[in-house]
Amino acid sequence: MNKYFKNFSIFIFSILVSVWSWFPLIWFLMVSITGPGGIPTKISLPSYITFDPYIHVIFGGYSGGYFLKSVIPSILDSLIIAVMCSFLTIIISVLPAYAFSRFNFMLSKTIYNGLLIVRMIPFVTLVAPYFVMFNNLKLIDTYHGLIFAITTLQIPPAIWIMRGFFDSIPKEIEEQAMIDGAPLIKRLFLILIPLIMPGISVAASLTFIFSYIHYILYSILSRGAVNPISIRIVTFIQEGIVMWNEMAATTILSMIPMFLFLLFLGKYFIKGITMGAVKG
């Protein structure tokens, strides 16, 4: 009896958790495939199904008297920024990660902890200086401007993750290579970096996703020429245009790259999230 009760309650809770987590999403999916007047105003399903909202947002066009620009360029912008940011982050942080792993003295630990501060302070506090600085450097509304800005945020976690992987490589491998006469540069690029490829994947996945979903920095640095998808979704709302169907279609489209990415590289992302905390 007790066992059945336990199984039954686990079942009920699983259903509740699933509904709570997925219902909003599924419902928005429903809204995105119906047209004007199709959204129910009481508990029921959409009254008819059409793919017009998707056609409107993908190809652009008039809807309800407003002209909609295609959202595909925005998604591409976001992807470009996210990919470039991942590259830049890895290039910048792989050597420091190695240094923090192999050089152990007081100052190295202090600097390592100092990186924590970069990650921990709310970035929105830097809005004013960032705006002024990027304005002076003429970096506003350019791809490299946005990439530089977002990379700052991603460097510390990337260093922590890759440092963990460097730590797990046994010192003997390096010593053996040293005895064989390989100079440091060779050791690093031919032996160590290939060995921490999984670490690089974890760091890159985390960077990719967090730069894809970012909002604040893009919102101060983007003025229309570069228009990431997160900005695009918000402009929809803030312009006061109520086109729920198109808005839902845009939102769903914005998730597609993420889902594809997670389908193939999800385990790296989850490893990245849990690594820092569980290891301590």
């Binding site: 699933s18 909003p24 909002y215 998808i229 979704i233 998730m255």
Partner: peptide, 29 residues
Amino acid sequence: LLRIIIVTPMLIMPVAGATIWRFLLSMHY
């Protein structure tokens, strides 16, 4: 399966999640 379901909301960009909830909280729909 349950793990995938639970993690999903985190993987939606916050801006999109906020839009979804704005809709769920709207007056008529």
